[in-house]
Each structure stands twice: as structure tokens, then as C-alpha cells.
Design a protein around this nucleic acid. Structure first.
Lengths: 222, 222
DNA sequence: TGGTGTGAATGCCTTCACAGCG
DNA sequence: CGCTGTGAAGGCATTCACACCA
């Protein structure tokens, strides 16, 4: 894999995912090679950026030719760790949780939610897709038996830290958190929080400040 | 609002959201003031970062005292544009779409999904929560009548661009896209893509590379 | 000519450090 | 003494520009 000492910045890792997504589209369209510039255009960055990002991990391109779509996709899957399947445990089978269980986009990228948990007795035992909801008290046992390394938190803000603690105690190494609070995890565990409302606020911020620029005044409530 | 010419970087805007979220928790706990250092700790950055971010928009703190929780929260809501309610139109009432319609986290932050659309005749007319799903062909009309400025895309990758085009044609100014493709929008429209699989890949990247550091070798498939 | 890989340069964000106020 | 606001310094990511290859 020929990595270069320096760790990749978070933004670069995100771009690698985008490159891979684009490469998979190209592969489906039977495209066999692509230049850094066109790959960059498709994901919204420059060609130089693409080359720098990839060069960090090895030599994948050929001067005068470009990058081989298939090989580069395979390399990116190895780099991102998605060249094999990841079994994942989800806690919190409410609206969002059950939608995530049924979400097809995870499977296509190699992520399989292989067990789902809740603490509400009314939910335990019901099926979401083909998956039976289990009692959260069995979490540690199930995770260890199946050697699951990834967890998804889809409970409310109030219970998120508690669930995170339970996950790390059970040996989970990576946590994707959909609760709108920052969670604390021990050294060695990776967590990432997706706050859907924050995503919308990033947009409204731009709208409001675009308006201000145009009109030279803060926007009143409509 | 006393902005300073320079536009806030995306990362700073995201932190503003996090500050606000934390301030609302503090307010619920009847805390009336907070120092930049402790606010930073709660969201994972330094005190200096907090002060720099806030100073960009005005003077909110008092030397020797800290920041007034209530006032700062109100100021951040104005800055982010969430001091008033935002009506939002969602397209694609599948798993994810219907979960988003029912998601409580949006309402709490002032985002109300006030109409939902689909093109599948089997879905049109059904209720999701208290909202009736409408025919997507009525999108433009509904959006204009209700002066809706925000749109959420919850369709598949293949239809996302088409939906985005329809939204901008209808006058939508900001788009939150859950389809795993980058969408192109005209100048003046703000879009932001949330790809759930990418979030997981950020985590697996760290896991794989943490393993490599420890063992000095790439990880084989298990 | 078209394209990669890469040192150098640029620009931006973050951190530092401190004056000044409560 | 504690804490903010801020210029200056530092570090890091992106862009530039070019040697080199097909």
C-alpha cells in the first residue's frame, strides 16, 4: 500500500470516498480510464487535489494516460478498508434507526447492519426488514460472539452517551452517532457524529448571509 | 449584527451550530454564563477557537465573566438564520424520506417539513405522520404558494439531479441532499450532500490505519 | 500533446500570547 | 485573578508549476 508517514487529513479521507463513489459509477458505465482533472470535476475539486490525495498512498496513474478505473477503485477500497464486509450493530430502532436498517446504500458499500437493539419492550422482537430487534441487554454478548467492530447510535440525545459507553465496553471500535450530542469515547475508539439539523443550519447560514450581502442588512423574520 | 467583511469558513459555521446546541443544553440546565474554554471543551475545540469564531460576528462576552448563555444562544440563532421557522419540502418518501418527515430533531431546531412529494402512485395520498404525500408534479405550485425556500432530496442516486433541477426551477434556494451523488445547482443556490456511507468509511479508514500503525502491515481480509 | 507526480509557494485556519477589562 | 478580544505566529491543506513519461 506504500503509505507515506503523514496521516491523511479528515477532508482528504472524505474525498477518497467521493472518488470511489464516482469510480464505481464510471465502472458501471464501462469507462476504463480517467484523468485527475475529470475525476476532480465530478466531485468538486481540482485535478491537482486528486493527484495529491492519491499520491499519498502510492502510484496509481500513468503519465499521458490517466488512472485505470478498476484498479484505482480496488486500491481505494483497500485504503478505506471497505474491500471486505463490515458487520455493524445498531442501537435504537425508532424512526431513524429502522430507516437505517432498511437503507440500501450501506449494503452497496459493504456495510451490513447485522443486528439491531432497543430497550423498549414493545419493540423487542419485532422485525425490521428481515432483522429481529433484540433486547439491548444482550448487546455485549451478541457483539462479541459475532466479532462486530462498528456500532451505530440512533437513540435520543439523552441516551447517546450511555449507549456509547456500552458499545465501547463491548469492544466496539468505531461509532457512527446520529444523536445530536457529542459523545466521549476512550482513546483508540473512533467516533463520528452526524447531526442532521446541523446540515440544514449550514445551508440557512449561507442563505441568510447571501441575503445580507445583497441587501446590506440583516434579514427580518418573514 | 456587526459582521466582519470576511466570510466564515464552512468549518466555523459547523462549530457555531455545535455551540448553539450546547448552549441550549446549558439553558435547559439553568446555567446562565459560560467561559469560552468550557464551551470549547464541550464541543471538542479550544477556547481560543470559540472566541475567534464568535468575535467574527460581534462582542458577546464580558472579560472576567464569560458569555451569557441566553443572549449568546439568541445571537447564534440569528447568525445561523434559525431565529424563525423554516418550512421545508421533501421529495422521496421511501425509508429514509419518511423517517426524516417524522424526525423530531428538525422541529426542535426550527425546521418543519411542511410538504412531502413522491412520484410513485402507490405512495401518493398516504400519510406519513400527519402529512399527506403529494404528487411530485405539483411540486412547483405548492412550493411557490407556500414560499418554501428549503428542499430535502431523499430519492435514489439516479433521480437526484433531476429532482435538484426541479427544485431550483421552482425557486428553492437551499438543498439538503441524501442521495449518494454530487448534485449540480446554479449559482445562488446552496446545496449540501450527506452521504451516510461516506460517514462510515471515514471511520473504517481510521480503524484500518490505526491497525496498520500498530502492526506495521496492511490488514488482510478477516 | 496529454497527463502524472511532486517540490515550492500560496493562502487559510488554528493556536499562541498578551493587553485590557471586570 | 479570570476571562475576553485580537494581532502575530505557526501549521497545514490546497494550488501552482514544471520535470518527466507515454
Amino acid at each position: 500500500m506504500s503509505g507515506k508517514g503523514a496521516p491523511a487529513p479528515e477532508s482528504a479521507v472524505t474525498r477518497l470516498s467521493h472518488y470511489l463513489r464516482r469510480l464505481e459509477q464510471l465502472r458501471a458505465a464501462r469507462v476504463v480510464k480517467i484523468s485527475s482533472r475529470r475525476l476532480g470535476e465530478a466531485v468538486g475539486c481540482t485535478g491537482a487535489q486528486v493527484r495529491k490525495d492519491l499520491a499519498r498512498f502510492g502510484q496509481f496513474g500513468r503519465p499521458g494516460i490517466g488512472y485505470p478505473v478498476d484498479e484505482l477503485a480496488a486500491a481505494l477500497r483497500r485504503i478505506l478498508g471497505t474491500h471486505h464486509r463490515w458487520n455493524t450493530a445498531l442501537v435504537g430502532v425508532g424512526n431513524l434507526g429502522s430507516a437505517l436498517v432498511r437503507y440500501e446504500g450501506f449494503k452497496r458499500r459493504g456495510f451490513v447492519i447485522s443486528c439491531a437493539f432497543d430497550r423498549d419492550p414493545e419493540r423487542i422482537g419485532i422485525h425490521v426488514g428481515s432483522l429481529a430487534v433484540r433486547d439491548v441487554s444482550t448487546f455485549g454478548q451478541v457483539v462479541r460472539e459475532n466479532r462486530i467492530r462498528l456500532g451505530i447510535i440512533a437513540v435520543g440525545a439523552g441516551e447517546a452517551q450511555e449507549v456509547a459507553d456500552m458499545m465501547t465496553a463491548a469492544g466496539i471500535e468505531g461509532i457512527l452517532n446520529f444523536a445530536p450530542v457529542e459523545i466521549n469515547v476512550p482513546e483508540g475508539v473512533t467516533s463520528y457524529t452526524v447531526d442532521l439539523a446541523v446540515s440544514l443550519e449550514r445551508i440557512t447560514y449561507r442563505l441568510v448571509h447571501r441575503d445580507e450581502e445583497k441587501r446590506g442588512t440583516p434579514s427580518p423574520a418573514p
